[in-house]
Design a protein around this nucleic acid. Structure first.
Lengths: 229, 229
DNA sequence: GTTCTTAGTGTATTTGTGACACTATGAACA
DNA sequence: TGTTCATAGTGTCACAAATACACTAAGAAC
């Protein structure tokens, strides 16, 4: 079967930059390409958009097909369409970025990918297509956005300690934060719920666990509150 | 001539939300569609992406073809691809937003548009396609971005007074600003060059003119400075 | 019970923000 | 030529927010 048009049309794909946190490092989920072009090279998960499918749905479908991930935080990032970015012909890629808690989502290669792995963002080079550039764009966006939108929590387990949260920000923003100032600040926003639970299985004093109250944030946001760290 | 592919492909378009300032109001440049679908209705300027043309180049070309505008500030906004957004069939639109100084760029309808006009953003409703949504997205982006990126200057003449600049921010952010605090703040950033010139042809005390020093901003930006209003 | 690691806590200083009102200038007009 | 009118231009004070900074507490490991 084939499809014919009066004018030439570019192919349209989606690509996903999925960020996770592992061993105190920021990681990105890459797949090893199972077929040409760039066979055997690392690439962002992604694929062609189906004809009757919304773009975001498309991104979620590809992510699930290639890495098993579902129901995660996902936002549109930028659209890349420079001619020549795909050797198979003009291809426009709508890129998305996602944040996941890696503990809940072990990497796994499904259908189309030979292999899937969490790679340290500082070591993710020489990716297929223009994926280095897409990754760089996603990183810049994450660094910019994390400061004025409470999206960092998406990278942590549902229950976390304040130290974990602080380390998360330190890793993303690439600078040390003062412990007392950080705590004062984040607690003063009144978005965290203090749980009656402590960390388990640590060989030092166990820290109190908290969770992020997304509903409360939504409510505050509507009445003009702005998260800012 | 026709073009055939193994899989169906969406059509890809670009649409531009061009903002301008006129009579102390924020305006958007609309064209009246010269042909179906939505013939005679107001729409954002835009059109199909050429096969060998970068997306941004495409947006600039369409803008020039339909409105005569060129060499203006233009950034990618968001990509809209919900199935059904174009009655002619699946169409993905990469939207851009632009800022121009309307004094230098009088509206004019070129080739493809029947008419082009600066419309008050509050009155720009019932546009063709999903252009209402695109406009709303662009407005939200402009309001968010203008506070931490010095892009507002793109809407003013090269030489402007501090009062003009303040009114610009008041119009975009939809709130009154304190004159003295505004001046203290903007001048303390040291991004404006005080000119040896004053306003002409006003029937009251003439104000000093300033211009934005883009180079200086670029330099400061690289050394970690962040514009914030 | 000693050591080790991380949790948890308060204050003082500096800096930034917001609120606020009058004089200066120059054109228009009587 | 002086009065009116519109907008330009200027400083301070009170309060809030940001920063810098160091010790004690808890609990596991040995």
């Amino acid at each position: 079967m084939s499809f014919t048009y009066d004018y030439p049309r570019p192919a349209v794909t989606v690509d996903c930059v999925v960020f996770g946190l592992q061993d105190q490092r920021l990681r990105v989920l890459l797949i090893r390409r199972a077929r040409p072009p760039f066979e055997g090279q690392w690439a962002l998960p992604g694929g062609f958009v189906d004809m009757d499918e919304d773009l975001e749905v498309s991104a979620r479908r590809e992510l699930q097909e290639e890495t098993g991930l579902r129901d995660i935080f996902l936002e549109q990032l930028y659209t890349f369409g420079t001619p020549g970015r795909d050797p198979r012909g003009r291809t426009i890629s709508v890129a998305y970025y996602a944040l996941v808690n890696t503990a809940d989502h072990p990497p796994r290669a499904d259908d189309d990918a030979a292999e899937a792995e969490w790679v340290d963002v500082d070591r993710a080079h020489k990716l297929a297509f223009d994926h280095d550039e897409i990754l760089a764009t996603a990183l810049a966006r994450l660094r910019g956005k994390v400061r004025y939108q409470p999206i960092g929590f998406e990278l942590l387990p549902r229950k976390f300690t304040l130290s974990q949260l602080q380390r998360l920000y330190e890793v993303i923003l690439e600078r040390k934060l003062d412990k007392r100032n950080f705590r004062r600040r984040i607690l003063s926003m009144d978005l965290l719920v203090e749980l009656d639970e402590k960390q388990q299985d640590v060989s030092h004093r166990a820290a109190r666990l908290y969770r992020f109250d997304k509903r409360k944030y939504r409510r505050l946001e509507e009445s003009g509150f702005v998260f800012e760290l």
